[in-house]
Amino acid sequence: MPARYVVALKGRGGEETAQAWAESHAAAAGVPVVRVHVATGDDADFAHPEPHRTTDVVLPRGPVPEQLARFLHDDDALVIGTGKTGFIHSRVFGTMSLRIAAVARCAVVVVPHLDLRFRSGVVAGVKADDLLDPVVRAASDEAAQRGEPLQVVHSSFSGIVPAPVETSASALEQAAALVQRLHPRATLRTRETVRPPAEALLDASRNAALVVIGAGHAHRSEHSLGPVVQDVLVNINAPVLIVPGGRFKHVE
């Protein structure tokens, strides 16, 4: 559970859904919400907050991702809104959420400006690596807290040749065992697919309340995201919680 929810304000439209998401989760968890605004000359969306808005913290002028990264703690959850959904819009209008998520050392939630009232279920994407445990913990905690069903998705797609069956079974079995231990009454469904992982997650999350995935690493860089999370964010169709591996703080 995060110690606080930090909402990054753009100062323009499209952030109301993210604020509501953060406030709802913070109220359920009994933790505070901190709203921040970063002033910068490079990113116009963050440069001019609307006059009627009140923010709790105004950070110094500078690049948005770096200023937020300096402010955040490891046990925070950073919530950022995006008004762009779908491949074409994201490619044309930029990938600020990707840049922020890549440098943040805490969990990051990217919330698209969509009507989330009638969505249900939590979808978690896993594979047999060191992110499986924190991803399943975060996803099962979210599902249990909200009384939502949980679906764990594993893709055996690896280019042309599918992964060995035992690898797929192992990942899903590990995930199911962990969910059973943490939340014995959880409604759990596991799903194996041969589709590319981002494609499978986007399909599974069309009507989901939340998608949970690990940040991954590209080119072994500390400040980078794996290709799956990049593809999911570029084509975002549901709130996405990005879990930063061992840096994610879980409270029993």
Rank of each mutant, 00 (worst) to 15 (best):
G13I: 04
H223C: 04
P63K: 13
L59S: 11
A3E: 11
V92E: 01
N237T: 10
A200M: 01
R220W: 12
V240G: 07
R189I: 06
G159P: 07
A175E: 13
V152G: 10
V38E: 03
H52K: 04
E16M: 00
D141T: 04
V161W: 06
S120P: 06
Q230W: 09
A144V: 02
V38Y: 03
A176V: 13
H250V: 01
V36K: 02
E173C: 09
A8Q: 13
V122T: 10
G81A: 00
R12V: 13
G226Q: 15
G226F: 14
A204V: 00
H37L: 09
H89T: 06
A198E: 10
Q174P: 07
H219A: 13
A176N: 12
D203H: 08
L98G: 06
N235P: 08
V240T: 13
P196N: 04
A104C: 15
G81I: 00
A28L: 12
I213S: 01
Q151E: 12
A104V: 13
S140L: 01
I236F: 07
L178M: 11
V194E: 12
A104L: 14
V111E: 13
R91A: 08
Q151N: 02
D231Q: 15
R91Y: 05
A26P: 05
L72G: 04
L59K: 12
P197K: 00
V36E: 02
R91C: 03
A102K: 09
G121W: 13
R35S: 07
E142T: 01
S97W: 03
S168K: 10
A198T: 05
T55M: 13
